[in-house]
Amino acid sequence: MFECRLPKAEVLKKTMDALKDLIKEAVWDVSAQGLSLQSMDSSHVSLVQVTLRTEGFDTFRCDKNIALGVNMDTMQKLMKCASNDDNITLKSEDNGDLLSLIFESPNGEKTSEYEMKLMDLDIEQLGIPDQEYSCTIKMPSGEFQRICRDLSNIGESVNITVVKGGVDFSAKGDIGNAKIHVTESSNVDNEKDAVTVEVNEPVNLTFALRYLNFFTKATPLSGQVSLSISPDVPLVVAYEIEDLGHVKYFLAPKIEN
């Protein structure tokens, strides 16, 4: 038996919004540690990894590890039936083929129960090593979303150059060129507005904007985004979900011809 309860459906709705354009089907792995999901997009260019820790739930019961194979589009549609303030319970039997989603209004006067058919999915899992990165940038997530969107008007790729104290995001295309320079904040009252740039060694890498724009669908989950970059390894774009977990996206740099 698996059963968990979150006080607000909003966070799970936003999590589904962050995933559904990138992946069509995925497996939620349920264990005593919480819920986790890992999946490549259909073209195997990027990888997304989600962790929702047990401690962030109101209640969490998992008698034995189970894998819930879901169609992301279906799950997102059902999640949309919940109001943001509803509390939400997810429930499944150990060998069941259904996931129950129960939404309860804050005043307890309305309870909605949906049952979603589960799928038997065999999804390749990859081991993601912990590693140190040459540079880590933290910035307002809305600002990163804006930069990716704006540079998409110019070209298909963004070149990210990180040096001490700042970052250049630049794009080239048939119509012209663009460069956006973001400087590290010197003094910030509100932490979520801050830009911080940690540089062990400067980097200069190029990434596909198409995928970065998919990743920024997670913007409503967190005021800040972190970009971890090293030469010749995938970029990590991470959104922390307060008190609950994170959504992390991985994208390999484009290579020179």
């Binding site: 490549m40 195997h44 990859l126 081991g127 190029t206 596909a208 991985f250 484009k254 290579i255 011809n257």
Partner: peptide, 13 residues
């Protein structure tokens, strides 16, 4: 510029 697959960077488990 060519785009490498993400699976070439991580070990299969």
């Amino acid at each position: 510029m060519p785009q490498p697959s993400i699976s070439s960077f991580f070990m299969k488990t």
